[in-house]
């Protein structure tokens, strides 16, 4: 895990941009989590553009952006803010997508594959354990209806380079038990579980804090 994350900033005052779309609902939790980690976190509105130079990290929180109309993340991927996001990703700004944020990154093509409806057809909302490709395990909650990771047969050769987190017990039918994937350059990460909802022990686990710290290279 440690090796798979970029370590481009030192410690304090990392500038984190948290993208907000209509229907994003984990924005405040995500902002608070990064603020608690000593970052200078601020929101980025879906209609706006931003300068990639102004941010060290970008985060797409969970929710149901634009009602998840058409497909989860489809409308968000068309939003003006994503033009700036794609520029930032091209420049190598480390980017994390949580749940709906993961779906948006896949819709944008910033991560390979797609997230489709759970095999059961049901919304799944409970705690899961996931294992990273470095062997670390994390207890975090999931809450999604479209969390089944699908990698087209034509891209299966990428599996080893994009695999990041796997479920101990696959809750949604994801290909190869994948709960999180990364891009080939290891600058863009997406996961279905919610690290911001597992930030303090009283929440049930603080493993999400550990994961976010690792994303920040702390």
């Amino acid at each position: 895990m440690e090796a798979s994350f970029p370590t481009n900033a030192t410690s304090k005052n990392k500038r984190v941009g948290v993208l907000r779309f209509l229907g994003t609902n984990c924005d405040l939790d995500t902002l608070k989590a990064f603020t608690a980690l000593g970052c200078e976190a601020r929101y980025l509105w879906w209609e706006d553009h931003f300068d990639p130079e102004d941010f060290d990290y970008l985060v797409l929180p969970g929710g149901f952006s634009h009602g998840d109309y058409l497909r989860s993340g489809a409308f968000a991927a068309q939003a003006p803010v994503c033009e700036s996001l794609m520029k930032a990703i091209d420049q190598g700004v480390p980017t994390l997508g949580i749940c709906n944020g993961f779906q948006i990154l896949c819709e944008l093509g910033a991560l390979p594959g797609a997230l489709v409806s759970n095999t059961s057809g049901r919304f799944k909302d409970f705690w899961v354990r996931v294992k990273s490709n470095s062997g670390a395990t994390y207890k975090m909650p999931i809450a999604h209806g479209d969390g089944r990771y699908f990698l087209p047969p034509s891209q299966i050769d990428k599996l080893d380079t994009i695999s990041w987190l796997t479920y101990e017990a696959n809750p949604n039918g994801s290909f190869q038990d994948l709960a999180g994937v990364k891009n080939e350059k290891s600058t863009v990460f997406g996961l279905m579980p919610h690290p911001e909802r597992a930030f303090h022990d009283w929440m049930g686990s603080s493993d999400g804090k550990k994961l976010l710290e690792e994303f920040l290279g702390v």
């Binding site: 489709v116 409806s117 759970n118 095999t119 059961s120 057809g121 699908f150 087209p152 047969p153 039918g173």
Partner: peptide, 14 residues
């Protein structure tokens, strides 16, 4: 339509 290689839970239920 969903591609054949993508499981369609609604179709299966029907």
């Amino acid at each position: 339509f969903p591609k054949p290689e993508v499981l369609d839970p609604q179709g299966r239920a029907l």
